[in-house]
Computed example of a mutant assay.
Amino acid sequence: MIRRMLLAATAALGLSAAPAAAQDRITLVLNWLPGSDHAPLYWAQQQNRYRDANIALTIENGRGSGFAAQRTGSGQAQIGIVDSPSALQARAQGADLVAGMMIYVQSPYGIYWKRSSGITGPQDFRGRRFGAPPADAARVMWPMIARAIGIQPNEVTWVNIAPEAKVASLQSGAIQATTHFYNVHYIYERVFGDDLGYVLTRDIGFNPYGNAFWINGPWLRANRDAAQRFIRVTQAAYRDCLANPAPCVEAVSGPAATSVEDLTVSWRLVAELMGDDPAGNRPLGGMDPARMATTIEAVRTAFNAPEMTPQQVMTNELLDPSIPSHRAPAR
């Protein structure tokens, strides 16, 4: 009897002393500094959703889509948030990247100017001075945007400025136009009021897929289960934040160093960009191969890139098919 009790106690101690399963370590590099579009990530991490999925997630600040693509493509980060045309351009240059979940179904590119500068629309861009960082996604894609407008890319002059200097440079007249993602549109409206002029490229015929979670290809092939757990936790977090944004913007307000009020306004613009893929009937974050093919063709034409197929650059298989796509609020 005593021997049986000792054996039972030993077995119990052995079970309690057994080490927990090692978590899968994933580094996610953002496209820029934390903002409203990253709120679901910080909220899910705050709620221990990644930990509960056996993922040890590290979120790194980014310095543009080009930087995120380079860091992810080289394997320094397993996953990066990258503007899709920038990711495809990086892939054409040798980076092995695969899109696992689309964030911006609609292109986020916007071009902003002051009406008092004499610009009345894109037809007046010729000879103007544009300012943006070299890695700015819309600047990188300028050849394609210019083609949609109907001008030559070299008909504007680009000036290098820091990301945080865009609004001030436009105010001062140091530049006459700049590019920015639509999720900060409210800032331009607030600063420039009735003097604001702008155009969204999706309204002038250039509407490629936007930001997505792009995954390092070799890591994905070796760690498909971990990649799927990350994508599904993230997909569910975006769904929950679309339904109830308040706790999500609260979670990112500290890392973003931005007020909850401003983040709430910005999140509404993010929600607009996330919805209404013409293909429809896809889960949240799902991608249409035909739409991706159009995005690939735009990049290939603009940069003389090698041919790629949607099957090579994207997968919907990591997503939870039961999470429905999002309907964009009216503008």
Rank of each mutant, 00 (worst) to 15 (best):
R3L: 15
A11W: 07
P19W: 05
D24R: 11
D24Q: 15
W32L: 10
L33V: 14
G35A: 15
G35N: 11
A53R: 06
N61C: 03
G64C: 07
S65F: 08
S65E: 07
A68F: 04
A69N: 05
S84Y: 11
R91T: 14
L97S: 06
V98H: 09
T120M: 10
T120N: 15
G121H: 01
G131F: 01
A132L: 01
P134K: 10
M141K: 04
A146V: 05
A146Q: 07
P153V: 06
W158N: 01
N160K: 12
N160S: 15
A177H: 04
T178E: 03
I187K: 12
Y188N: 00
R190F: 02
F192E: 08
V199W: 10
L200M: 12
D203I: 04
G210V: 09
N216V: 04
W219H: 12
R224M: 11
A227T: 09
L242R: 10
A246D: 15
P247A: 08
V249I: 15
P255L: 08
P255H: 10
V260T: 11
L263H: 00
V265A: 12
L269N: 09
M274V: 05
L284W: 08
A293Y: 03
T294S: 13
T295A: 07
D320I: 13
R331E: 14
R331V: 14
